[in-house]
Structure formats: structure tokens, C-alpha cells
């Protein structure tokens, strides 16, 4: 069994797939920065961002539904912002009491919570599109393109290669554990040992995994040395970004700046 499903890349030939990965990465970052910079409650600007991200989803052939299904990742985190509806001072909407406490929900609090959730929602969608339309080798190119040190990119490349190998090993370990975790037919008999015992077993598997990692690291180093590796990371220079894509990126950033100004003007 292989862990294919770990790879979020979705093969395709759409316009978004064909864009230079550096352009995509920079645009995604600019989009997320714009979303973060927008003041709370700038709904008009939020809607325009949503329109952009939906359009990109359509252009990418992924479809809006595909992305939305994966965009729920940030949902649990909204919980962290939930108390804001009580704590931000402002126009009270309604109040209720739990025991000795009286909680008042304010308009400003609700607005801020929804704003945070919305910003995070559009940002995560754009990140999903990036990961689904850019293969990992292309992402590595993009990382080099925006100036991430070669050493770090090389480590990330190796890491990606061996995540699959080691994830297969983890699945084998877990299956071996499951195969030996039978329950006693005696009713009411305690199953699975104490929490400390379970933790120790899991820890043993983690240690086992680290040991295999180190041993594989040694073997890979031997395989690399055998082909002339000397500790320095070398690669071909990156091809230039096509001019038309530069212009497109520039245009897109200007649009984002306009949306940002609109959002700021509206909420002053």
C-alpha cells in the first residue's frame, strides 16, 4: 500500500496550471497579505476578493466545489476568535446569563468574528488552489525563485521524497500494532493497557521511525556520494519568467492594491 493521497497536486492543463510557479506563489502571497491588511468589516472589498478567488478556481478547472470542500480546515480555529463577540466593546445586540455571569453580544464583536473568519476563508482557498495546481517540483522552483536558500530547498526536496517512503513505514507499524491489539472475549475486561503504556508503545514506534530515518539518511548519503556529491547543493539556473506573465502579475497586484484602498476608504 502506498500513500498516494498525501499529494494534493491535481493534474491538469488549465491556464492556472500553466502559469510559472513563481508567479503563482507571489500572487498567492500578495492575495493573502491583502486579505490580512483589509480592515474589519470592509465587506465590499471582501466580496471582491471572494470573486477573484472563485474566478481563479474556475480558471484552474478545479471547480469551486472542490476547493470549498477542502477549505474547512481553518474552521476549528474560528473557535479561538469566538469569545470576541462578547468582549469587543460596542453596540449591544442582546445579552443572556449563565449562572452568575451576564454575557453581552455586541455588533462590533460579531462583525470582527465574521471578518476574521471570512479573511481566513478566502486566504485558505487561494492556498488550496496553489497546492492543487502546482506540482511539488514546481513549488521547489518557486521557492528558489523567491530567494529561499538552496540548502533549505534541497532539504525540503528530500523531505518530500521520503515522506512517502516513511509514511508507508508508519502505516505498516500501525497495522502491525492494530493486528496485535485484540480485545479479550471476557466482558468488561479492560482493553489496551494504561495510557502510559499506550504512550510508551507509540513512543517506541516513533523511536523506531527516527532510527529508520537516520539509517536511511546514511544510505542516501552513500548513494549521493557515489554520484559525486560533495556537500554543495547544485542545480540548473531557473528559466526566466515569461514577460507576459510578469505583466499579468503586475496587473493582478494593482487590482489587489485597488481593492485594499477601497476597503480602507470604506471603513474609515
Amino acid at each position: 500500500m502506498h500513500v498516494h493521497f498525501l499529494d494534493p497536486y491535481h493534474n491538469g492543463t488549465s491556464l492556472i496550471h500553466q502559469l510559472d510557479p513563481r508567479v503563482k506563489l507571489v500572487f498567492t502571497l500578495a492575495f493573502i497579505v491583502t486579505a490580512s491588511l483589509l480592515p474589519f468589516g470592509a465587506w465590499a472589498a471582501y466580496i471582491l476578493l471572494l470573486a477573484i478567488v472563485f474566478s481563479v478556481e474556475l480558471l484552474s478547472d478545479l471547480g469551486i466545489r472542490y476547493v470549498l470542500k477542502r477549505a474547512f480546515l481553518a474552521t476549528p480555529f474560528v473557535l479561538a476568535a469566538f469569545p470576541l463577540i462578547f468582549t469587543v466593546p460596542g453596540v449591544p445586540l442582546f445579552s443572556f446569563s449563565i449562572g452568575p455571569w451576564t454575557l453581552t453580544v455586541t455588533l462590533e464583536g460579531v462583525e470582527r468574528l465574521l471578518s476574521i473568519a471570512f479573511k481566513s476563508w478566502v486566504a485558505v482557498q487561494m492556498a488550496i488552489v496553489l497546492a492543487a495546481t502546482t506540482s511539488f517540483p514546481q513549488l521547489l522552483q518557486a521557492m528558489r525563485g523567491i530567494g529561499i536558500p538552496r540548502l533549505l530547498v534541497a532539504i525540503i526536496g528530500l523531505m518530500w521524497r521520503y515522506i512517502f517512503v516513511l509514511a508507508d513505514e508508519v502505516l505498516r507499524l500501525l497495522r502491525a500494532r492494530a493486528a496485535r491489539s485484540g480485545a479479550s472475549p471476557e466482558i468488561g475486561k479492560r482493553v489496551g493497557g494504561s495510557i502510559a503504556w499506550r504512550a510508551r508503545t507509540t513512543g517506541g514506534m516513533a523511536g523506531n521511525l527516527m532510527m529508520r530515518g537516520f539509517e536511511r539518511g546514511d544510505r542516501i548519503y552513500a548513494a549521493m556520494s557515489a554520484r559525486g556529491y560533495d556537500g554543495e547543493v547544485r542545480a540548473f539556473p531557473l528559466p526566466p519568467v515569461p514577460r507576459i506573465q510578469w505583466l499579468g502579475l503586475g496587473g493582478a497586484v494593482i487590482v489587489l492594491l485597488l481593492i485594499l484602498s477601497l476597503g480602507i476608504l470604506l471603513t474609515r
Partner: peptide, 13 residues
């Protein structure tokens, strides 16, 4: 030199 485990030999993306 070709090592036994191709997962050691093929370390690139």
C-alpha cells in the same frame, strides 16, 4: 554504483 533499495538510489523529487 547502484544500491539495493531504489528508494535510497532515487532521492530527488
Amino acid at each position: 554504483l547502484v544500491f539495493q533499495d531504489p528508494d535510497d538510489q532515487l532521492f530527488s523529487p
